[in-house]
């Protein structure tokens, strides 16, 4: 039993370092069940902030201090689903998650 706990702990700590997991565990995990979808939100950010630098800065800003003003979601969506809780992630993890999010949905190289 003790050996199994150590193994799980080792796996978890290995996964902890991966960007994908920070994103998967902290963003995808929730948005998979809760609307709006991450893809929809990404294109809303793109529509408003355009470039990678500006999108990432706006995202970080919102996640750290979620307010109605900073949100890209419409009034109705906010009323229906409410604002996200303030992130508890450290800055490095937050940026890792945002980087993964950008890489997942970015349009660069995908347009034919």
């Amino acid at each position: 039993m003790g050996r199994l706990s150590v193994t799980i702990l080792l796996i978890l700590s290995a996964l902890q370092g991966s960007n994908v997991n920070v994103y998967e565990r902290n963003c995808v995990a929730c948005h998979r069940h809760v609307s709006p979808s991450l893809e929809k939100l990404f294109f809303d950010y793109l529509l408003k902030y355009s470039s990678e630098r500006r999108v990432k800065r706006a995202l970080a800003d919102y996640l750290k201090h979620p307010t109605k003003k900073r949100s890209v979601a419409s009034e109705e969506v906010i009323q229906k689903y409410g604002l996200m809780p303030k992130t508890w992630l450290r800055d490095t993890d937050l940026h890792k998650a945002i980087d993964t999010y950008w890489e997942t949905y970015k349009v660069f190289g995908k347009i034919k």
């Binding site: 529509l47 902030y49 470039s51 349009v107």
Partner: peptide
């Protein structure tokens, strides 16, 4: 004005 696909 609206950055479709991020295009300004």
């Amino acid at each position: 004005d609206s950055y479709y696909l991020g295009a300004k």
